[in-house]
Design a protein around this nucleic acid. Structure first.
Lengths: 236, 236
DNA sequence: CGGATCTGAGAGCAGTGCTCTCGATTCGAG
DNA sequence: CTCGAATCGAGAGCACTGCTCTCAGATCCG
């Protein structure tokens, strides 16, 4: 199908809107994202933008999906460079990729993992697929290591211990299904914890919770944290 | 000094502004916080509130400080109910208190620990003191346990291992000083990790990163996560 | 009592998201 | 090639925001 000039122009304008939106997001943050400002940068009157983007929230959704995709791509590329036989290295690569991207694109990171934008409800059918790629990859790293018998189960049980596992958590069946993994409950739980903890560390750093420069060497601190998270999974 | 009627009225109005602000924060989120709306609820014209609050950011700061204070009070109360000799119980109480408050006041929690409000810079001299009470308490739990010889150092070193400690992290001297603790580097690092991880877990839950109801039983999941974090510190 | 201070009202400026209408352009079927 | 239909940009307009300014009245205090 020969794309008509009009369709071409439309796609081009659409791209440019998202591009300018990304720039404004990086500059002024999510709350400062203004369709009128985008229209100005586009050299067009404000109402014209509404021919392309239904609303401000629609643009937000576009930026969210693109953000997830970009983060996922970076993370997947980084992990792919480490052999499957080195789960600890793969987890480290994943963590470093997340942190590097978050520091490079703090506004987009905040849009994805920070406070939900009030009044904005992400349409799940458009964002979940993009948003689960990273946790899926993390779980697959754990799953591969477990399947290959490379998780020190004895150590894992020594750490988690029957008495230390307070209650059987229901609902992990859905997690197993959603992520296509087959791991025992305690390993799944630890995986979820590592996932949350990783983003907790990155968020604290990106959002400035550590307070100015309280932590002398953020890089070294993060390396240490990632190592401890791998310890938590008893990865070799 | 006998407080004049005018001073009394002023303090009262001030309180009411903050009270209404808190309500709006819970209802519409930080971005939806509008001085004009507050003025309306106060039955006063918009410019009048500027007699009490210098700007919207000033109000934000007031709400932030109050949020930190409230959270800290809850956490300290919860921890105080557990004897010092039970560090694991104290850590659990701390975590549960944070999570309970965060779920009860998601908007305030987001204001404190979510994406930084764009264009808003928290005046450190007013927020850091309030903001460090919880991490200070967490560190003191760890410190007390360590001083009492109740951290299984052998297990801790088995987990962290010399080879697993990638690099010496400089800057922990400042942390030790700021928190008034005297712990070896690896224990400090683990404490910081536990702190970040705890808020990562809570943030993921409050901000809906787990996706709708993917996790069947959030309470049980959190208990499990807190237990694993205590394991990470090798607490008894 | 009377000057100084504080307070609320109101108008106004610049910005926002979003809707509507109205010409002009472009598309595609006849 | 033509003509109706679809698309597009411009502009005005509505309701809202933060914030500033001025003005009149209330209150304080020496």
């Amino acid at each position: 199908m020969a794309t008509t000039p009009r369709a071409r122009a439309r796609a081009q304008t659409m791209d440019e809107i998202v591009r300018i939106g990304r720039r404004h997001l990086a500059t002024d943050g999510a709350a400062g994202l203004s369709l009128r400002a985008i229209a100005r940068d586009l050299g067009v009157v404000s109402s014209a933008v509404y021919r392309y983007v239904q609303s401000r929230d629609e643009l937000l959704t576009l930026l969210i999906v693109e953000g997830y995709d970009e983060l996922s791509r970076r993370v997947e590329d980084a992990v792919a460079e480490v052999p499957t036989a080195d789960p600890r290295g793969r987890l480290g690569a994943l963590g470093r990729a997340v942190r590097t991207w978050a520091r490079a694109e703090p506004a987009t990171y905040a849009l994805l993992f920070g406070s939900p934008v009030p009044g904005y409800r992400a349409p799940e059918e458009r964002t979940v697929a993009a948003g689960t790629r990273v946790p899926r990859l993390l779980m697959s790293i754990v799953s591969d290591a477990y399947a290959a018998g490379r998780i020190d189960i004895a150590a894992h049980h020594r750490a988690t211990g029957a008495s230390a596992t307070p209650a059987l958590v229901s609902g992990f069946e859905e997690v197993r299904e959603a992520f296509g993994i087959d791991l025992p409950d305690d390993v799944v739980a630890t995986g979820v914890l590592v996932w949350s903890a990783l983003f907790g560390c990155v968020s604290f750093e990106v959002f400035g919770q550590y307070g100015a420069d309280a932590m002398g060497d953020p890089d070294a601190l993060f390396e240490l944290q990632v190592t401890r998270l791998a310890d938590l999974l008893c990865l070799p």
